[in-house]
Design a protein around this nucleic acid. Structure first.
Lengths: 218, 218, 218, 218
DNA sequence: TATGAATGAGCATTCATTCAT
DNA sequence: CATGAATGAATGCTCATTCAT
């Protein structure tokens, strides 16, 4: 078993090699599982793709499920790192929403692998992937929180009743649209316009907010 | 070879027994593949769940992929049969939309198995499931067409420019929301309100349509 | 899994082939495990020795431990069948003891495989062989019972106190000598005289019985 | 290569650490092999039990078989050290036999591990354990010799013909009873009385000696 | 139609062993 | 001396598939 030292010392040359191997394995596993699912991905395939013998995979990870969990976690980290941080966003609420939708759609289009892995594992529901499923829930909770913040900021100028609740609903709906659009893109790649769907959703939600505000005024 | 074309004569007792076996196998396979994916479902498991020996499975189907395709097709048939036919829908456009959203959400909640199978297979993209993937595309094309009709009917009173195009976009978005809400329900069953999301989407889209109409008038 | 039909019908030609395969596998496994122990015997080795592919082994048996249990049970059956039945023994007690010692020693010398398997498994004490261990205990209980009967019959003419208790102790000791002599024969085959040990044990026990009787008389 | 010959100088701190590691490894290996046999004991298990990485095991020993041999040899040494030396035994022959039986039975009961290892390896007869088997034969030869001495001393007062030959047979039988009783204790721990068996064997042998003497007199 | 049996490739995992540091 | 990492063969077992009856 690969005991990762919690100690703070420089890794030896050998240990660095180990870290590199670990990375190669995770990358290969993540890619393959995103393509074929957990059950459809064999350790032999990961070994082939990563270039390391299967024995080495089991030196770094205790089991196939463990490897899946690591791949999900690692992917989540990279995904979050690729999103703009809140303080990098424009302060104007409308611009802010636009920027978030824009960057999220871009991330979906450019690095679809991780999202596919997420959805696949979430739907597969085998027996041995509880750790991975927990990681998925964590990822989504984080994403939802971020969307929530943005929606709240956006609805600020609209003085509608139950504004925070409304923001949460907007966030949930947006998350669903992201997942749905991604899947549509997968099944009908030619006729699916991810950005178009996001755009329309944004316009519709704002229209709804305006309408609610007008009702309130009346 | 299995399935001989459905000749038009009464099936003998023997043949009826065969039909029953076929049904049992498809049911078992559909349920298992929806749980564990194609790769994660073994013929042995289907044999156990259906109660028929694996040899019998190979009498009815040429291969595992063939069985998957049949399960998808069969599920699609049942799914469509469970939806209300167009002529059963109310003629008032608003009521009609409401009814469609209502019945679709109900179908998602009550018989989630088939949709899970659909999404799972669509995301898995192995090598051997082209037939199944084609079936999935057919199913979605039909669903989209139906949604299209409804959206067109709904937008009829709104005399916005590019109305048909708009209806198509509304249909696509709704399909995405259906998929996305279903997935959300899978990952966070407790905090996901499928009907709530549908409801909000409906209201937002109508608000958008109204706004577009108002812009036009101005 | 090989469902053995409890039904009383003639086995088909195919089923007979299956029974033959099962026998081949058990024979190979019994021989190998007696040579190398349970842990040291691989399914691949059993496959090679039996001439059947490993998949077939798992059609007939659920696991390696299951196979071991079957081999022990089968060996026990054959072993017992090879021993003379009580009613075949001479009625004269001394002759009877002699005959039993004689036939048991002969069985040990001629078919040592099963006893080796028994002792090996008994000493190995892994985790997965509870069924086999239970079988071993059953075998020994039977053997002890048989020896007990004989010892009781033998001590009948000696009117010593606690005769039955004494017979049981004689039986236990004889069982131990059988095991011990067998092991000695294994480690030092050239200098070990199994029959000689049995002979001496018999004489010593009879001498002891006589002495006890004499003490009683005094 | 490992073990350099024990040069006569104080071991450095480093070397002492090495000796300690060696001891830990041997202890772990001995215990595990006594439980699961040679084939059933993995280097990984020895590593875990001893707390030293598998690489270190291979620094101290050339191979797994080498480690087994060392464990057997080491166990034999300790076993012999635990037995009373001849000059510590009482001079009265009867007392002497009693003491020997007593101490041997005690050793069997208190430190059964080594004997189990011995018997297990003796029965297993793999390919790679010739060194260990030779060690076992040496151990038994020593044990037999010791028993021989004692039996000869014990039979001294009995002036029977072929006394030395008889002593050797008594020794062999006693050894067998030791092994057999130990095994019985293993299989039926609750109903086996090791000391009782030894006691009865002792009485029976003495009775036989007396009888032979009486015959001679007659 | 149905099924018991077989088959060999493939599965996840562990093995004994090596080696650079 | 010690150890983290690697390696590829072997492990027990399951797989999709075939086939005689």
């Amino acid at each position: 078993m690969a005991r990762q030292a919690a100690v703070d010392r420089k890794p030896t040359q050998r240990e660095e090699l180990g870290i590199e191997s670990r990375r190669k394995i995770i990358d290969a596993a993540g890619a393959l599982m995103a393509e074929r699912g957990f059950g459809g991905t064999s350790i032999a395939a990961v070994s082939k793709r990563s270039g390391l013998p299967s024995g080495s995979i089991y030196w770094h990870f205790d089991s196939k499920a463990d490897l899946l969990a690591a791949a999900v976690e690692e992917g989540a980290q990279r995904w979050f790192d690729s999103l703009p941080r809140l303080d990098e966003l424009p302060s104007d609420p409308v611009e802010r929403v636009e920027r978030v939708f824009e960057t999220t759609a871009a991330a979906l289009e450019e690095r679809p692998q991780f999202l596919r892995l997420l959805l696949l594992i979430a739907l597969e529901r085998g027996d041995s992937d509880e750790v991975a499923f927990a990681a998925i829930q964590r990822v989504r909770a984080l994403a939802r929180e971020r969307l929530n913040d943005i929606m709240r900021a956006t609805l600020e100028p609209f003085d509608v009743p139950g504004r925070d609740e409304l923001a949460a609903q907007f966030a949930s709906l947006t998350l669903s649209i992201a997942d749905g659009a991604f899947i549509a893109h997968h099944i009908e790649p030619d006729s699916t316009d991810i950005r178009g769907q996001f755009d329309m959703a944004r316009r519709a939600l704002i229209a709804l907010a305006r309408e609610l505000l007008a009702e309130e005024d009346a």
